[in-house]
């Protein structure tokens, strides 16, 4: 490839990559995402949600709309959505980070490109198809949705873990060895801390992917705010539909923001 072609963006080929590039990795290259964005995003979300809440408390709704937009129901759907997001992300972390570490150890290093290629190929499948197929296979419900979300979100974390660990300057590892550190303490005290920013970028990408995809969980009765959108469409009740869309978007932006904050907080202090 030529010099121009070698841009940091050429190797990205799929949805996760698009989001990784746009949302995660780009900011890992920047030194600081800028506090204005870090404050502006939750502020914007707060304004939107408050405006919506004011509208909701005053709007003239018919009985169906009232039932769908009941405060306790809304709270429950939001909690379900968060639960889907958090559980799926935690499982993804528990699998992808250790796997990524294992795939950068000398014994398994050669398998790394293979695993990433496989994960990449899986990403080409449309997520709605994945969800429906898994539901046909395993039945409707929460854990089927979790499985689909995990399959979908594992790639960014896995790849960023591998890339982050491979990006550690080998002379630093050498220096650690020279100081008499064991393999394990080289990993724990040099490699992982240095790779944390890249790994965190992958985790944030996974969070954003999961919170968006969890919207589709309602199709297989796994709950979440997507239910408002499908109900709104099915009953042609625009207030329900738009409320659902606004709340989902607000939640996604908020999760994205939480990921950004997490990225800032976990960045090792020596890395600036």
């Amino acid at each position: 490839m030529t010099t121009v072609d070698r841009g940091p963006d050429t190797s990205r080929e799929n949805v996760a990559d698009a989001k990784a590039a746009a949302a995660g990795l780009a900011s890992s290259r920047k030194r600081r995402p800028g506090w204005r964005l870090l404050l502006g995003q939750p502020l914007f979300v707060a304004v939107v949600v408050i405006a919506w809440a004011i509208w909701r408390s005053q709007a003239d709704l018919d009985s169906i709309e009232k039932r769908q937009l009941d405060w306790t129901l809304l709270g429950r759907l939001t909690l379900e959505h968060l639960k889907l997001t958090v559980v799926a992300t935690v499982i993804v972390l528990a699998i992808a980070v250790p796997l990524g570490i294992a795939l950068t150890r000398p014994r398994l290093r050669r398998a790394a490109p293979l695993v990433v290629a496989f994960a990449n190929a899986g990403q080409a499948a449309p997520v709605i198809g994945l969800i429906v197929l898994l539901a046909i296979w395993l039945g409707f419900g929460f854990w089927t949705a979790i499985l689909a979300l995990c399959l979908y979100a594992i790639l960014p974390v896995l790849r960023n873990t591998i890339v982050g660990l491979q990006g550690v300057d080998p002379t630093l590892v050498e220096a650690g060895r020279g100081m008499g550190m064991s393999n394990r303490s080289v990993l724990g005290r040099i490699e992982l801390p240095l790779a944390v920013p890249v790994i965190m970028a992958g985790i944030r990408t996974a969070l954003v992917l999961v919170v968006g995809t969890a919207t589709l969980a309602t199709f297989i009765d796994a709950g979440g705010l997507g239910g408002l959108i499908t109900t709104g469409i099915r009953l042609l009740r625009y207030p329900v539909l738009i409320s659902g869309a606004i709340l989902v978007a607000a939640l996604a932006l908020l999760i994205d923001w939480a990921g950004r904050v997490l990225e800032e907080v976990t960045r090792p202090r020596g890395l600036e």
Partner: peptide, 21 residues
């Protein structure tokens, strides 16, 4: 760049919902 990042955060199903009306 920021708009691109924020835009990709919005779930596609939510945008579809917003567009229907």
């Amino acid at each position: 760049g920021g708009v691109s990042a924020i835009g990709l955060t919005i779930p596609s199903f939510a945008l579809l919902g917003l567009l229907i009306p």
